[in-house]
Amino acid sequence: MGKVVALPVRPRREPLLPNGVLGMLLFVLAEIMLFAGLISAFLVVKGLAVEWPPVGQPRLPVEETAFNTGALLLSGAALAWAQARFRRAPSTALRPVLLAVALGGLFVCFQGVEWVGLVREGLTLRSSTHGSFFYLIVGLHALHAVAAILALGWAALRLAEGRLRQDTFASVQLFWYFVVGLWPILYWQVYF
């Protein structure tokens, strides 16, 4: 394999989905299965319990989180808006992207505050399966949210430099929509 050859011309085949978007789509499918596994596990363990939440464990803050859910959904909408603007004139998309980042950041911070409160009330990783599942599932989602925010921030940076390509943007968006779309399901399953 030592010989060096000239770079062959890439074949002309118009892909149905650009590489980055297809790759991200596949990744998201795997992630959906990951969370499906967690939710199933949660339901099975919950079904085993006589009382839920277990005796002596705090109830989760449903109402506050409803507000928080709204913030996250809005951020998804902001990103969709950004895409619409990006198509017309890329530079005008910067503001909605930053809005999406800010709303996402708000979501994560709010959750952090909520966690501190819950730990004070006695819900910890070890206090019961309720706590274990709550921190595992919601924490894993939060990790994804943080990663997605970083990716969005990076996209915003490239956008500001005028170097963001449509398919790059599309794959980052896809990941963010996954994070946003997953949350209501987790909220419905875990909090109620």
Partner: peptide, 13 residues
Amino acid sequence: NNRAEFILTTAFM
């Protein structure tokens, strides 16, 4: 008492 959940999640998964 979690048979129903087992069957449900099995179908789901």
